[in-house]
């Protein structure tokens, strides 16, 4: 039971990270109708930016950990958001009204560019960081000496996720930008006719998605204590799986899907085999799509004849 509780905590933390990435996929899919294959790499870039800015700040002599983390968060979000913007501007915007496969291949190409750009820029080796947030609470002392722990790090990941989600929900449901986004999602032509700047709205979607992914990247860095140039690929597919599982286009669905994938992966690793955890995640994707193509919270698609 204790073991189960511990895995539940670990799974929820991992799921929060996936959920943050998944939002980017689901938003972009909702508005532009394409899988942003480069989004996983944006997450990876976010991790790197966080790492480098962290190193810089520490070298500058800052010692207050909360201040450092806040600055790192802001820098990572800002710079990564610019990456998201640039990717959209270069690789997707020229193809907006093109033949449908084109943006997808362009996105795959962009994903390769980002992966190999960070490999060239920062080397292929894994970049470790020492644990920055330590300590935690022991929730339950088990009889066999197994204790259920909740680390401060885990608390931070989950609470940052919750805060960001709250902000993000507010953004989408209460602001003008959010309204524009929802309008573009429904009908771009009509939105444009009603005075919505579609290009800008789509750009902002990528910017927000990238900013959230960068937070996920930073959380990943802090939680696992390392980043590498290849981590975006698998994390990206899993987050996409999460988005699909939750019902693509649905924001709460993305978070829900993220948590589900995090839990599935953690429990699979804990009770079955670590080697096949990715196989489990991908199989779930296939199974969900077969039996529930619209996901948990997605809208059903009616075939028009």
């Amino acid at each position: 039971m204790d073991y189960f509780a511990q895995q539940l905590i670990n799974g929820l933390v991992l799921g929060s990270i996936y959920g943050l990435i998944a939002i980017g996929y689901t938003m972009v899919y909702g508005i532009v109708g394409m899988i942003n294959f480069a989004h996983g790499d944006i997450f990876m870039i976010g991790g790197f930016i966080a790492l480098i800015s962290f190193l810089l700040l520490v070298s500058l002599g800052l010692t207050a950990i909360p201040l450092i983390l806040l600055l790192v968060l802001l820098v990572a979000m800002a710079v990564t958001a610019l990456y998201g913007w640039t990717v959209e501007r270069i690789a997707y915007r020229p193809l907006r009204h093109s033949f449908r496969l084109a943006p997808m291949l362009s996105a795959i190409g962009m994903s390769f560019v980002l992966t190999n750009y960070s490999q060239v820029a920062q080397g292929a080796r894994v970049k470790p960081v020492p644990p920055i947030i330590t300590g935690g609470y022991t929730l339950h002392e088990g009889a066999e000496g197994f204790a259920v722990r909740l680390s401060n790090m885990q608390i931070m990941v989950v609470s940052v996720t919750i805060v960001l989600l709250a902000m993000f929900t507010w953004l989408v449901s209460r602001t003008r930008l959010g309204r524009d986004m929802r309008a573009c999602e429904q009908d771009q032509t009509m939105a444009a006719l009603l005075g919505v700047d579609v290009d800008r709205t789509i750009s902002m979607t990528f910017v927000i998605g990238a900013a959230l992914a960068s937070v996920a990247g930073m959380m990943y860095l802090l939680y696992y204590g390392q980043v590498d140039f290849f981590m975006g690929f698998v994390a990206g597919i899993k987050a996409f799986t999460a988005a699909v599982l939750g019902g693509i286009g649905s924001l709460p669905g993305a978070v829900l899907g993220g948590l589900a994938i995090g839990l599935i992966e953690t429990f699979w690793s804990a009770y079955f085999s670590v080697e096949y955890k990715d196989v489990a995640a991908f199989s779930i994707l296939i199974i969900v799509l077969i039996f529930m193509p619209t996901g948990l919270l997605g809208r059903p698609e009616v075939e028009k004849v």
Partner: peptide, 10 residues
């Protein structure tokens, strides 16, 4: 600036 201007290595 961060990705190329600064190189990290373990």
């Amino acid at each position: 600036s961060l990705m190329i201007g600064i190189r990290t290595e373990a």
